[in-house]
Design a protein around this nucleic acid. Structure first.
Lengths: 114, 114
DNA sequence: TTGACATATTCCTATATGGGAATGTAATAT
DNA sequence: ATATTACATTCCCATATAGGAATATGTCAA
Protein backbone atom coordinates (compact mmCIF):
# COMPACT_ATOMS: atom_id res chain seq x y z
CA UNK A 1 0.00 0.00 0.00
CA UNK A 2 1.16 3.52 -0.72
CA UNK A 3 0.87 6.46 1.61
CA UNK A 4 -2.58 7.54 2.75
CA UNK A 5 -4.34 10.18 0.71
CA UNK A 6 -3.97 13.77 1.86
CA UNK A 7 -7.70 13.96 1.59
CA UNK A 8 -8.16 11.20 4.12
CA UNK A 9 -8.09 13.43 7.18
CA UNK A 10 -6.90 16.69 8.70
CA UNK A 11 -3.60 15.18 9.81
CA UNK A 12 -2.61 14.39 6.26
CA UNK A 13 -3.90 17.67 4.96
CA UNK A 14 -1.81 19.82 7.29
CA UNK A 15 1.33 17.78 6.67
CA UNK A 16 1.89 20.03 3.67
CA UNK A 17 3.59 23.31 4.72
CA UNK A 18 1.80 25.33 2.05
CA UNK A 19 -1.54 24.21 3.34
CA UNK A 20 -0.59 25.28 6.85
CA UNK A 21 0.35 28.68 5.45
CA UNK A 22 -3.01 28.91 3.75
CA UNK A 23 -4.84 28.04 6.96
CA UNK A 24 -2.93 30.70 8.87
CA UNK A 25 -3.63 33.24 6.19
CA UNK A 26 -7.34 32.49 6.06
CA UNK A 27 -7.88 32.32 9.80
CA UNK A 28 -8.53 36.00 10.35
CA UNK A 29 -10.42 36.78 7.22
CA UNK A 30 -11.92 35.18 4.13
CA UNK A 31 -9.96 35.78 0.95
CA UNK A 32 -10.33 35.16 -2.78
CA UNK A 33 -8.05 32.65 -4.47
CA UNK A 34 -6.12 35.38 -6.25
CA UNK A 35 -4.88 36.83 -2.99
CA UNK A 36 -3.77 33.45 -1.76
CA UNK A 37 -1.88 32.93 -5.01
CA UNK A 38 -0.15 36.28 -4.60
CA UNK A 39 0.67 35.53 -0.99
CA UNK A 40 2.12 32.08 -1.61
CA UNK A 41 3.89 32.79 -4.89
CA UNK A 42 2.61 29.54 -6.37
CA UNK A 43 0.76 28.96 -9.63
CA UNK A 44 -2.98 29.39 -9.42
CA UNK A 45 -3.78 25.75 -10.28
CA UNK A 46 -1.57 24.54 -7.46
CA UNK A 47 -3.31 26.78 -5.00
CA UNK A 48 -6.71 25.65 -6.21
CA UNK A 49 -5.64 22.07 -5.66
CA UNK A 50 -4.46 22.77 -2.13
CA UNK A 51 -7.74 24.51 -1.43
CA UNK A 52 -9.58 21.52 -2.78
CA UNK A 53 -7.80 19.23 -0.35
CA UNK A 54 -8.50 21.56 2.55
CA UNK A 55 -12.14 21.71 1.55
CA UNK A 56 -12.46 17.94 1.28
CA UNK A 57 -11.30 17.43 4.83
CA UNK A 58 -13.38 20.31 6.14
CA UNK A 59 -10.55 22.67 7.04
CA UNK A 60 -11.90 25.58 5.04
CA UNK A 61 -15.27 27.01 4.11
CA UNK A 62 -16.05 28.55 0.75
CA UNK A 63 -18.66 30.83 -0.70
CA UNK A 64 -18.98 32.38 -4.09
CA UNK A 65 -19.02 36.14 -4.54
CA UNK A 66 -19.47 36.96 -8.20
CA UNK A 67 -16.59 35.35 -10.04
CA UNK A 68 -14.58 35.07 -6.90
CA UNK A 69 -14.49 32.20 -4.46
CA UNK A 70 -13.96 33.36 -0.91
CA UNK A 71 -12.21 30.91 1.35
CA UNK A 72 -11.78 31.00 5.09
CA UNK A 73 -10.36 28.65 7.66
CA UNK A 74 -12.70 26.42 9.59
CA UNK A 75 -10.92 26.38 12.94
CA UNK A 76 -13.16 23.62 14.23
CA UNK A 77 -11.45 21.24 11.84
CA UNK A 78 -8.10 21.83 13.49
CA UNK A 79 -9.40 20.98 16.92
CA UNK A 80 -8.94 17.19 16.72
CA UNK A 81 -5.31 17.78 15.91
CA UNK A 82 -4.89 20.09 18.88
CA UNK A 83 -6.56 17.60 21.14
CA UNK A 84 -4.49 14.70 19.94
CA UNK A 85 -1.27 16.63 20.51
CA UNK A 86 -2.58 17.89 23.83
CA UNK A 87 -2.61 14.37 25.23
CA UNK A 88 1.14 14.61 25.42
CA UNK A 89 1.27 17.92 27.22
CA UNK A 90 1.63 16.38 30.66
CA UNK A 91 4.57 14.36 29.41
CA UNK A 92 6.58 17.23 28.06
CA UNK A 93 5.80 19.25 31.16
CA UNK A 94 7.12 16.39 33.20
CA UNK A 95 10.27 16.30 31.12
CA UNK A 96 10.78 20.03 31.58
CA UNK A 97 10.27 19.69 35.31
CA UNK A 98 13.03 17.10 35.46
CA UNK A 99 15.39 19.28 33.49
CA UNK A 100 14.68 22.22 35.75
CA UNK A 101 15.21 20.06 38.81
CA UNK A 102 18.60 18.94 37.61
CA UNK A 103 19.60 22.49 36.82
CA UNK A 104 18.70 23.56 40.34
CA UNK A 105 20.71 20.76 41.90
CA UNK A 106 23.68 21.84 39.85
CA UNK A 107 23.27 25.37 41.18
CA UNK A 108 23.23 24.10 44.75
CA UNK A 109 26.47 22.25 44.26
CA UNK A 110 28.08 25.33 42.82
CA UNK A 111 26.91 27.39 45.77
CA UNK A 112 28.25 24.80 48.22
CA UNK A 113 31.68 24.88 46.66
CA UNK A 114 32.00 28.64 46.98
CA UNK B 1 7.69 17.65 -7.18
CA UNK B 2 6.28 14.71 -5.24
CA UNK B 3 4.92 14.76 -1.75
CA UNK B 4 7.26 15.76 1.08
CA UNK B 5 9.11 12.99 2.85
CA UNK B 6 7.61 11.67 6.06
CA UNK B 7 11.00 12.23 7.57
CA UNK B 8 10.92 15.92 6.80
CA UNK B 9 9.17 16.94 10.01
CA UNK B 10 6.83 15.92 12.79
CA UNK B 11 3.75 16.99 10.84
CA UNK B 12 4.47 14.49 8.10
CA UNK B 13 5.45 11.79 10.56
CA UNK B 14 2.19 11.90 12.51
CA UNK B 15 0.08 11.98 9.37
CA UNK B 16 0.27 8.19 9.44
CA UNK B 17 -2.34 6.70 11.83
CA UNK B 18 -0.10 3.80 12.83
CA UNK B 19 2.60 6.17 13.92
CA UNK B 20 0.14 8.08 16.06
CA UNK B 21 -0.87 4.80 17.65
CA UNK B 22 2.75 4.03 18.36
CA UNK B 23 3.29 7.43 19.97
CA UNK B 24 0.27 6.96 22.20
CA UNK B 25 1.44 3.51 23.18
CA UNK B 26 4.95 4.64 24.00
CA UNK B 27 3.98 7.78 25.88
CA UNK B 28 3.57 6.17 29.28
CA UNK B 29 6.36 3.66 29.12
CA UNK B 30 9.24 2.51 27.00
CA UNK B 31 8.65 -0.75 25.15
CA UNK B 32 10.60 -3.22 23.03
CA UNK B 33 9.76 -3.54 19.34
CA UNK B 34 8.18 -6.94 19.85
CA UNK B 35 5.45 -5.50 22.05
CA UNK B 36 4.69 -2.79 19.56
CA UNK B 37 4.42 -5.41 16.84
CA UNK B 38 1.99 -7.42 18.96
CA UNK B 39 -0.01 -4.32 19.78
CA UNK B 40 -0.34 -3.09 16.18
CA UNK B 41 -0.74 -6.44 14.48
CA UNK B 42 1.65 -5.42 11.73
CA UNK B 43 4.73 -7.24 10.47
CA UNK B 44 7.88 -6.51 12.41
CA UNK B 45 9.70 -4.88 9.46
CA UNK B 46 6.85 -2.43 8.99
CA UNK B 47 6.95 -1.47 12.62
CA UNK B 48 10.71 -1.02 12.50
CA UNK B 49 10.29 1.28 9.55
CA UNK B 50 7.69 3.38 11.32
CA UNK B 51 9.96 3.59 14.34
CA UNK B 52 12.78 4.69 12.08
CA UNK B 53 10.69 7.55 10.76
CA UNK B 54 9.69 8.60 14.26
CA UNK B 55 13.30 8.48 15.33
CA UNK B 56 14.47 10.56 12.39
CA UNK B 57 12.12 13.40 13.24
CA UNK B 58 12.86 13.15 16.96
CA UNK B 59 9.49 11.87 18.10
CA UNK B 60 10.88 8.86 19.93
CA UNK B 61 13.97 8.02 21.93
CA UNK B 62 15.68 4.64 21.84
CA UNK B 63 18.10 2.73 23.97
CA UNK B 64 19.42 -0.77 23.70
CA UNK B 65 18.85 -3.33 26.44
CA UNK B 66 20.53 -6.56 25.48
CA UNK B 67 19.04 -7.64 22.20
CA UNK B 68 16.05 -5.46 22.69
CA UNK B 69 15.60 -1.90 21.58
CA UNK B 70 13.46 0.08 23.98
CA UNK B 71 11.51 2.92 22.45
CA UNK B 72 9.61 5.69 24.13
CA UNK B 73 7.80 8.78 22.98
CA UNK B 74 9.61 12.10 23.09
CA UNK B 75 6.68 14.35 23.97
CA UNK B 76 8.78 17.46 23.34
CA UNK B 77 8.69 16.65 19.66
CA UNK B 78 4.91 16.88 19.58
CA UNK B 79 4.87 20.33 21.08
CA UNK B 80 5.34 22.32 17.86
CA UNK B 81 2.30 20.57 16.48
CA UNK B 82 0.26 21.43 19.54
CA UNK B 83 1.37 25.01 19.38
CA UNK B 84 0.59 25.38 15.70
CA UNK B 85 -2.90 24.00 16.19
CA UNK B 86 -3.32 26.12 19.31
CA UNK B 87 -3.10 29.30 17.24
CA UNK B 88 -6.60 28.52 16.03
CA UNK B 89 -8.10 27.94 19.45
CA UNK B 90 -9.46 31.46 19.76
CA UNK B 91 -11.17 31.08 16.41
CA UNK B 92 -13.03 27.93 17.22
CA UNK B 93 -13.97 29.33 20.59
CA UNK B 94 -15.32 32.34 18.81
CA UNK B 95 -17.31 30.13 16.48
CA UNK B 96 -18.73 28.20 19.42
CA UNK B 97 -19.66 31.44 21.13
CA UNK B 98 -21.61 32.51 18.07
CA UNK B 99 -23.43 29.22 17.90
CA UNK B 100 -24.31 29.46 21.58
CA UNK B 101 -25.49 33.02 21.11
CA UNK B 102 -27.81 32.05 18.32
CA UNK B 103 -29.20 29.18 20.32
CA UNK B 104 -29.96 31.53 23.19
CA UNK B 105 -31.75 33.97 20.93
CA UNK B 106 -33.87 31.16 19.66
CA UNK B 107 -34.78 30.24 23.22
CA UNK B 108 -35.80 33.83 23.93
CA UNK B 109 -38.12 33.87 20.97
CA UNK B 110 -39.69 30.65 22.10
CA UNK B 111 -40.18 32.04 25.59
CA UNK B 112 -41.76 35.20 24.17
CA UNK B 113 -44.25 33.23 22.18
CA UNK B 114 -45.44 31.27 25.16
C1' DT C 1 -23.75 37.11 -27.85
C1' DT C 2 -18.95 37.83 -27.14
C1' DG C 3 -14.93 38.77 -24.47
C1' DA C 4 -12.55 39.02 -20.24
C1' DC C 5 -11.76 37.54 -15.66
C1' DA C 6 -11.46 34.22 -11.71
C1' DT C 7 -11.13 29.51 -10.65
C1' DA C 8 -11.23 24.56 -11.21
C1' DT C 9 -9.92 20.37 -13.46
C1' DT C 10 -7.21 17.33 -16.32
C1' DC C 11 -2.91 15.52 -18.08
C1' DC C 12 1.76 14.38 -17.31
C1' DT C 13 5.90 13.24 -14.61
C1' DA C 14 9.28 12.61 -10.91
C1' DT C 15 9.27 11.20 -6.36
C1' DA C 16 8.17 9.15 -1.88
C1' DT C 17 6.02 6.14 0.14
C1' DG C 18 4.01 1.62 3.11
C1' DG C 19 3.59 -3.17 3.25
C1' DG C 20 5.31 -7.92 2.42
C1' DA C 21 9.22 -10.98 1.58
C1' DA C 22 13.89 -11.88 1.99
C1' DT C 23 18.10 -10.82 4.01
C1' DG C 24 21.50 -8.62 7.13
C1' DT C 25 23.21 -7.64 11.87
C1' DA C 26 23.96 -7.37 16.86
C1' DA C 27 23.73 -9.71 21.31
C1' DT C 28 22.87 -13.79 24.15
C1' DA C 29 22.71 -18.68 25.16
C1' DT C 30 24.84 -23.20 24.96
C1' DA D 1 32.08 -21.36 17.67
C1' DT D 2 27.19 -21.88 16.57
C1' DA D 3 22.37 -21.48 17.01
C1' DT D 4 18.83 -18.44 18.39
C1' DT D 5 16.60 -14.24 19.37
C1' DA D 6 15.35 -9.41 18.40
C1' DC D 7 15.59 -6.00 15.21
C1' DA D 8 16.96 -3.28 11.05
C1' DT D 9 17.54 -2.86 6.18
C1' DT D 10 16.89 -3.84 1.34
C1' DC D 11 14.17 -5.07 -2.65
C1' DC D 12 9.96 -4.78 -5.13
C1' DC D 13 5.49 -2.84 -6.38
C1' DA D 14 1.11 -0.33 -6.36
C1' DT D 15 -0.39 4.09 -5.19
C1' DA D 16 -0.78 9.02 -4.20
C1' DT D 17 0.91 12.90 -4.66
C1' DA D 18 2.66 18.23 -5.93
C1' DG D 19 3.73 21.17 -9.45
C1' DG D 20 3.63 22.92 -14.26
C1' DA D 21 1.09 23.27 -18.61
C1' DA D 22 -3.00 23.19 -20.98
C1' DT D 23 -7.82 23.26 -20.90
C1' DA D 24 -12.54 23.63 -19.06
C1' DT D 25 -16.11 26.09 -16.40
C1' DG D 26 -18.66 29.81 -14.37
C1' DT D 27 -19.81 34.80 -13.95
C1' DC D 28 -19.93 39.48 -15.23
C1' DA D 29 -19.42 43.37 -18.64
C1' DA D 30 -20.36 45.60 -23.06
Amino acid sequence: MARAATTSDAFNAVAEPRRREILNYLALQERPVGEIVAMLGLEQPSVSKHLRVLRDVGLVHVRRDGRQMLYRTNAEGIRPLHEWAGQFERFWEHQLARIKERAEKKMEKKTDSI
